[in-house]
Computed example of a mutant assay.
Amino acid sequence: MFQKPPKAATSSGSNYIRISRDALIIDATMIGSSLQEENHLKVLRLLAVNPHMNQRSLANALGVSLGKANYCLNALLDKGFIKMESFRKSSNKLAYAYLLTPVGIAEKAGLTVRFLERKVTEYERLTREIEVLKSEMSQIQGDANL
Score class of each variant (00 low, 15 high):
residue 88 R to V: 15
residue 28 A to S: 09
residue 143 D to K: 13
residue 122 E to D: 14
residue 25 I to D: 02
residue 141 Q to F: 09
residue 132 V to A: 08
residue 27 D to N: 15
residue 29 T to W: 08
residue 94 L to D: 14
residue 119 K to A: 13
residue 15 N to S: 06
residue 32 G to H: 03
residue 18 R to N: 08
residue 111 L to T: 10
residue 125 R to F: 06
residue 125 R to Y: 12
residue 11 S to D: 15
residue 52 H to R: 04
residue 58 L to R: 04
residue 85 E to S: 08
residue 125 R to G: 04
residue 25 I to R: 08
residue 75 A to Y: 01
residue 43 V to R: 04
residue 91 S to L: 12
residue 95 A to C: 01
residue 121 T to I: 13
residue 52 H to V: 02
residue 90 S to C: 00
residue 18 R to E: 02
residue 133 L to T: 07
residue 143 D to V: 08
residue 44 L to C: 03
residue 138 S to G: 15
residue 76 L to E: 03
residue 49 V to C: 02
residue 72 C to F: 10
residue 33 S to C: 01
residue 26 I to W: 05
residue 70 N to G: 15
residue 86 S to P: 13
residue 20 S to N: 07
residue 25 I to A: 08
residue 89 K to W: 08
residue 117 E to F: 13
residue 79 K to A: 14
residue 57 S to K: 11
residue 27 D to R: 13
residue 5 P to I: 14
residue 106 A to C: 06
residue 131 E to I: 07
residue 9 A to I: 02
residue 30 M to P: 00
residue 67 G to V: 12
residue 25 I to E: 08
residue 17 I to D: 09
residue 56 R to D: 10
residue 136 E to P: 01
residue 24 L to G: 11
residue 101 T to V: 05
residue 81 F to Q: 02
residue 33 S to H: 10
residue 130 I to F: 11
residue 137 M to W: 06
residue 33 S to Y: 05
residue 46 L to P: 02
residue 44 L to A: 08
residue 56 R to F: 04
residue 11 S to R: 15
residue 46 L to V: 02
residue 63 G to D: 07
residue 54 N to D: 15
residue 62 L to I: 02
residue 75 A to L: 14
residue 125 R to W: 03
residue 41 L to S: 01
residue 3 Q to A: 13
residue 69 A to E: 09
residue 29 T to N: 09
residue 47 L to E: 06
residue 76 L to N: 00
residue 63 G to P: 09
residue 34 S to W: 06
residue 110 G to Q: 14
residue 43 V to F: 00
residue 74 N to G: 07
residue 118 R to V: 04
residue 62 L to P: 07
residue 102 P to L: 06
residue 9 A to V: 05
residue 47 L to G: 09
residue 59 A to H: 04
residue 128 R to L: 11
residue 38 E to M: 10
residue 136 E to T: 12
residue 19 I to E: 01
residue 81 F to C: 11
residue 141 Q to E: 13
residue 83 K to H: 03
residue 121 T to L: 13
residue 116 L to T: 13
residue 74 N to M: 03
residue 44 L to T: 05
residue 22 D to F: 01
residue 8 A to M: 05
residue 88 R to D: 13
residue 35 L to D: 11
residue 86 S to I: 14
residue 80 G to T: 09
residue 131 E to C: 01
residue 121 T to A: 15
residue 70 N to E: 14
residue 80 G to W: 00
residue 5 P to D: 06
residue 6 P to D: 02
residue 23 A to C: 07
residue 45 R to Q: 12
residue 79 K to C: 03
residue 107 E to H: 10
residue 97 A to M: 02
residue 31 I to E: 14
residue 127 T to W: 07
residue 10 T to A: 04
residue 32 G to Y: 12
residue 66 L to T: 03
residue 62 L to D: 09
residue 39 N to Y: 03
residue 80 G to K: 05
